[in-house]
Design a protein around this nucleic acid. Structure first.
Lengths: 193, 193
DNA sequence: ACCTGAACACCGTTCAAGT
DNA sequence: ACCTGAACACCGTTCAAGT
């Protein structure tokens, strides 16, 4: 979020963008340094000039990912001040990944791979969840939708359920299933309507 | 489910059991043929006597996994005929994976890896979801919990949400978070109580 | 400042050969 | 019937060397 808008992207930026797309489709384990280098028209060894290791690159990717997510959610709040409307639109941020070649949230994928993640990557993955849950809690509290005590629990539940819907829709390569699942959550009362 | 109870497990059975545990922790990509062979005290090349490829082994693992799941759910219905009680206990089947060294559902992990899965494995992963959704739908219809029209949607929603809760709990290595999330689903009305 | 070729130990897989 | 050693092309990574 603190990039120079009028400057062309640096080599490191281009690596981060390409690596993010690969990791959303194939995970940390499936992020292949040689294939990534091929995408960028350089050799695998060159990547190590910009990032000291695959762990270092993946941590930078995950950090950028949650920072972008945090900025998107903040912008959401500004353009859509009504809490109920904010919550109604929240699942759209997850829908966008599926629209992009059936990809999923980088951090959902990496959460599955938790055992194999370097600690530096784990910390950034956890940050993504925290940012999302904290945002949801603020909106729920602002809307006085449940007791203040229950706002944290409800926020976690919405995050987990939307993540699960995204994953299930990927397994069917069917974005309409995602929409159906979100509608079911609303009908059941999980997402205050 | 059609194994000979009084016979000692065959080499193939032992491979399947060990491979299942690895795949629940590391996924299809993280299922390392040499490490698996080491676990079993044989050489990697020997695995190819029993299974023609890693894809073939993973498909057999996923098939056994949903067959066992189907059998467990059927046994559930027999010992617990009350639909509401069945639904209340359903999340326990997912809790057990977390109890086993923070592992998750084999098929949730493989769903994340969908792009990299051989077609034979994909088919078995889809079967797991279908078995679970079909069981949930039967129970929901038997309990007359929602309109018959909505039973399918509700069954899918419960499966997606419980899967998401399992994944989120793994990312925190905190099984009590799983319990909290399931309670929140009940409080919100997603799981009929 | 940025990139590369060659090398290392590690992967899935094959296959001829062993018991 | 079941297992193995050696070999293949492929991974992440290093490093000396190039521009």
């Amino acid at each position: 979020m603190k990039n120079q808008p009028s400057t062309s992207p640096s080599s490191s930026d281009k690596i981060l963008v390409a690596a993010t797309r690969i990791a959303q489709a194939h995970g940390f384990g499936g992020l292949n340094m040689r294939a990534l280098a091929d995408d960028l028209g350089i050799k695998a060894a060159s990547l190590y000039y910009h990032f000291s290791s695959k762990a270092d690159l993946a941590a930078a990717v995950a950090r950028l990912y949650w920072e972008d997510s945090a900025a998107t959610l903040e912008a959401f709040l500004i353009e859509t001040p009504a809490p109920a409307e904010c919550l109604r639109r929240y699942p759209n941020t997850f829908r966008k990944s599926l629209e992009s070649d059936n990809r999923i949230c980088l951090c959902s994928f990496m959460t599955a791979e938790y055992d194999d993640l370097p600690e530096g990557v784990r910390a950034e993955v956890r940050a993504f969840t925290e940012v999302n849950v904290a945002w949801l809690k603020r909106v729920i509290v602002a809307g006085a939708m449940v007791g203040a005590q229950d706002a944290e629990n409800r926020a976690q539940a919405i995050f987990a359920a939307v993540s699960g819907a995204q994953l299930m829709a990927r397994g069917r390569s069917d974005i309409t299933l995602f929409d159906t699942l979100i509608d079911s959550y609303r009908a059941a009362g999980l997402i205050p309507a």
